[in-house]
Design a protein around this nucleic acid. Sequence first.
DNA 1: CTCAAGTGCTCCATACTGTGGAACGACGGT
DNA 2: ACCGTCGTTCCACAGTATGGAGCACTTGAG
Lengths: 292, 292
Amino acid sequence: MKAATAMAALRERDDATDIAVGEGDDRALPGAQVVDRVVDILETFPRIGPELGVSDISRALGLKKATAHRLLASLRRRGIVAQDPVTRRYRLGLKLWELGSMAATQVDWVDRVKPFLQQLTDATGETSHLAVLNDGQVLYVDKVESSHSLRMPSQVGKRNPVHCTGVGKAQIAFLPPEVLQNLVARRGLSAFTPRTITDIDALQVELAGVRERGYAVDHEEIEEGLVCIGAPIRDHTAHVVAAISIAGPSSRLRPETIAGHAREVVAVAHRMSAVLGCPPDLLGPAPEPRRT
Amino acid sequence: MKAATAMAALRERDDATDIAVGEGDDRALPGAQVVDRVVDILETFPRIGPELGVSDISRALGLKKATAHRLLASLRRRGIVAQDPVTRRYRLGLKLWELGSMAATQVDWVDRVKPFLQQLTDATGETSHLAVLNDGQVLYVDKVESSHSLRMPSQVGKRNPVHCTGVGKAQIAFLPPEVLQNLVARRGLSAFTPRTITDIDALQVELAGVRERGYAVDHEEIEEGLVCIGAPIRDHTAHVVAAISIAGPSSRLRPETIAGHAREVVAVAHRMSAVLGCPPDLLGPAPEPRRT
DNA sequence: CTCAAGTGCTCCATACTGTGGAACGACGGT
DNA sequence: ACCGTCGTTCCACAGTATGGAGCACTTGAG
């Protein structure tokens, strides 16, 4: 039952919004204006900068300065945003972080699979990520840094497109076809590098390969020199609820070493799925274990 | 400069609200009603339960069902809350977690000191915590679990009183006297166990000891059988900005072993302070290093 | 099965609430 | 001293959120 609610939590907007035809539905329903503006303000901080003044926000959102100030003052009183006492500029507050961490613990399985991430980094020596599908993008939930000096900046809380990431392809490969169509229609297939897959048919072929192998590879499709290997995690109903990946420079994750690393990724993913109660026979393809 | 903003971010409401005489200041300023109601709704989830219906919330907050529904619908549209497609009940959404994690990365030093927490747990074998002072309470920002089977439940994102925790006492010991007075006046000194310090004068004596030793000990003051050893972390201006602690059962953290463990805690805290640019001569008392 | 009490949700006239133009004092840079 | 910009305050207006009433539906007891 816990897993059932966990699964529901995952699909969130993917069930509600992705399947729905449009997404910019009835925007002007009553009670929405202030709420929308508040959320807009909060989303401005990640977008523009970590520390913003009233004027910055009013300019970025087209609000009057007085309005922006009033909303910010209300949010400050509640600790949602904080104000630097000397510069008088605002930043996101710790109360917001507190609420956010409560949201995370509600997705109860996250805590249960986190320990395995460390195993993955230990086994491969590369940075590993845990990500879920949310609102048509992948959202990085946790990571364990590689000990190598060459590594990526922090990604926890960040979003990325699904079609050019290991964790993305590992998850969308198992979506119902019409949901995938909808997702692509809404988010598009933007190119980030020459190797990004921008054609829907090519993507379908790629995803068929993912289903067959049980893991997904991102060959510098979102960033030059960055290679990822991702594998899906399934809950007790065998639905894909998240994905893990390792990420490293193409100099370390070379074509001839990828299969070996993928074995580790899939092995850890299967262990996570088992913890979530996934029946062993529904785990999906497992590469033959390393001979010892 | 990064450290300067980091410091400001810490003190947030402690400068703004704690020092101010009252805290329930001008509540009825315009633009506040909807914002307050929205924050009230969000805070209801941690307080009542992780999954609430419209009626639950309207009852808990005294809102009309229609109002609660309208606000929840607005929040859902933005992903701040999510709705289970079958039970139609609401829970905190991943967008909130996303925003919260952005708030955390804005306190940029957190990422810089996190690696040291693992060192502390490795050295002591106990669960270690990183916490900041916020709104007159300690807020747990990160933790590394002990490998022991006997351990505490997840505390990240949770709040605790300052007067009966290692991380709390380690921080309030270095507050300006009037700020401490204010804090105690607002939060009180509630008793959780027979050993909780509930007298302000006794607390002052205890805190003087903390300043002298450079670390704070919680001897089952918040929970029977739970012992914590905390030490402060200072930024480049030598201000205390956070604290770390180890926590374990009184059976493992016995009186005769505490001094030894405290050495480790203080050593790691000093290492963290050094990373934040604290001048070595302002680190505070350092117990003589272990002889090798 | 029936009924009643519960749920989440919708509608709409009312009036309360948030809006934004204008103005203020305070900085910080020319 | 100037000017531009900052965050902040004020207040009349009107646009917006409010909540009572009622909807369709599920749940559980009789």
